[in-house]
């Protein structure tokens, strides 16, 4: 065992981790925005747009991410649109396109899960469509969507490792660079897996904690009534 290889290259690996974080963060923001737009479009059943959103979502969800990332970076951007882009920009664009389709389905599911009685009550109170969405539907739906959204973001963080296949030097690729030089594959891979595990596992625990707190709040509210 040669664990000193981790200590020797710790700074390099952490630089990779920072790139992974940056990529994940920007992709989360982007896919949340695009996914929400798509999800609400599908929920509202606007004639043409809903169908287009549904087609987009189904298309993206049935294709592997690696196909997207390679063809967007090496095919579409340089040869069809004529725009060279950095590894980082291509990876980010791909992850946004990919994850937004999944987020959109979660958002739509959350919005659709609202019981009809809530909406009827809101209508009878004279709330407009937008007010219903803002004050009645979204607060409940967001709470229901949170666990699924967080697990989607955990999947996204794991998916950022695919950016290494086109050459972005994030955590996985920086590890590869180290073991291609030192041949200590086992130590490096275990360490990288451990770092991913720490990030993803703590995120999932955090989401469970938030979930539990929500339940406590809603329980006490019901007790007060």
């Amino acid at each position: 065992m040669h664990w000193e290889v981790i200590a020797d290259n710790f700074d390099f690996l952490m630089k990779g981790l920072v790139t992974t974080f940056k990529l994940a963060f920007l992709s989360i923001i982007g896919s949340l925005v695009l996914g929400t737009l798509l999800g609400i479009t599908r929920y509202l059943r606007i004639p043409f747009f809903s169908l287009a959103a549904a087609a987009y979502i189904e298309f993206v969800r049935s294709i592997p991410l690696i196909l997207f990332i390679f063809f967007i970076h090496f095919g579409f951007l340089p040869y069809i649109l004529g725009a060279q882009s950095s590894f980082f920009a291509s990876s980010c664009l791909t992850l946004v396109i990919f994850t937004s389709a999944y987020v959109a389905e979660i958002i739509r599911g959350g919005l659709d899960s609202i019981e009809k009685e809530h909406i009827d009550a809101a209508v009878s109170l004279g709330l407009s469509k937008l007010q219903r969405l803002r004050y009645i539907i979204l607060p409940i739906a967001v709470q229901r969507m949170m666990p699924a959204i967080v697990s989607q973001f955990i999947a996204l963080i794991k998916d950022t490792s695919l950016a290494s296949t086109i050459g972005l030097i994030e955590l996985t690729r920086s590890g590869e660079i180290i073991y291609e030089r030192t041949y200590h594959e086992f130590e490096v891979l275990v360490f990288i897996a451990f770092v991913y595990f720490l990030v993803c596992f703590s995120l999932s625990r955090l989401s469970r904690l938030l979930e539990a707190r929500h339940y406590i709040v809603s329980d006490s509210r019901e007790a007060l009534c």
Binding site: I154, K158, D159, S161, L162, S164, T165, T172, E176, Y179, E185, F186, L189, V190, I192, A193, Y196, F197, C200, F201, S204
Partner: peptide, 23 residues
């Protein structure tokens, strides 16, 4: 379950393909 679900598949693939042959 937790270890597998919280690490990327790519790393697991590399692990089986590149790290296991050492053992």
């Amino acid at each position: 379950v937790e270890v597998i679900r919280n690490t990327p598949l790519l790393i697991q693939l590399y692990f089986v393909y590149k790290a296991l042959p050492g053992f």
